[in-house]
């Protein structure tokens, strides 16, 4: 294995029990899977458990992947999505579309790439807004904005229609935008008073 093989070739090798093919696939897809799980679950330990489980399923269910139906990354994100939903249900977090989901996000988990005080404040507000978004809206936003899936692929991962996905993502963006604008207005008022 050179690492230049396609996902399809590597998955065929995994079906034959080739562990080096499995390792190449881990290298190739782990980052996007762990980031997606983290953005849904909000904490590091659960993210690691879910990521391990996703790749365990890649190994045990490799023959079930149908390359003509979905890309490997789509299939893996779907597994990760389902595992995250199951995890949230088990741990008492609601996943109903219109109900906000409170995540266990700690300050040290999420970090901002910028260190200015204003940005930190904005990041914190954005984090808290993200954590209160309903699960379907958050998933839709994560898949399309961060993972770079098309609306059609994201809908397939979440097992919803494209229309439903677009409705979720639009509502998520509107909520976050309103919050940021409200935040900016409040800051402007404070500066004027000061």
């Amino acid at each position: 294995m050179t690492g230049e093989e396609t996902d399809e070739e590597l998955m065929l090798a995994v079906c034959d029990g080739d562990q080096s093919a499995y390792r190449i696939l881990v290298k190739r897809h782990l980052t996007s899977i762990s980031h997606y799980a983290f953005r849904l679950l909000g904490n590091q330990r659960d993210t690691e458990d879910i990521s391990q489980e996703v790749f365990l399923r890649l190994w045990t269910n490799a023959s079930k992947w149908q390359p003509e139906k979905a890309r490997l990354s789509t299939w893996l994100h779907r597994i990760a999505h389902n595992l995250c939903i199951d995890f949230m249900r088990k741990h008492g977090r609601t996943v109903i579309d219109d109900e906000p989901t409170k995540l266990d996000i700690r300050d040290e988990d999420y970090t901002s790439s910028e260190q200015e005080p204003d940005t930190d404040d904005r990041t914190q507000r954005l984090n808290s807004a993200l954590s209160t978004l309903p699960e379907n809206q958050r998933s839709a936003l994560m898949l399309c904005h961060y993972a770079g899936f098309s609306n059609k692929e994201a809908a397939a991962i979440m097992n919803v229609s494209v229309k439903a996905l677009e409705s979720n993502i639009a509502r998520a963006r509107r909520t976050l935008k309103d919050l940021l604008e409200e935040n900016d207005t409040m800051r402007g008022d404070t500066e004027t008073i000061g």
């Binding site: 980031h35 590091q44 999420y110 970090t111 904005h145 935008k177």
Partner: peptide, 13 residues
Amino acid sequence: LDAALDSLTVPDF
């Protein structure tokens, strides 16, 4: 909004 979302990074696993 997109810039604010991009500024959120995840921990290094």
